[in-house]
Amino acid sequence: MSAAKFDELIHPSTRLTLVATLAAADWAEFAFLKDRLALSDSALSKQLATLEEAGYVATERYLVGGRRKLRARLTKAGRQAYDGHVAALRLVIDSAGESVAAESVEG
């Protein structure tokens, strides 16, 4: 299990959904991601490029029947960062719950 670590790069909502989608898959095609996230080609390319620069995502370009396609997957570093981020989010909720419980006992 990854240590809780809030990741500023992953947290913005579009990028979080993109990374969470890739985390649930071995790989996903550009068209699938574009459809799931309801993004334009350029917006999705920009998000993928940001994640790729950080080493969180790897992309692979290939040809199918003369058409160029792009496939993206989460790297090991990306998965660790994502798992750590999810753990950090859970920690925020858990610690808030504990604070409320402690206040109830004290009160």
Partner: peptide, 9 residues
């Protein structure tokens, strides 16, 4: 954020 993650999954 966790709800968005679950929705994506």
């Amino acid at each position: 954020a966790l709800e968005a993650i679950e929705h994506a999954r």
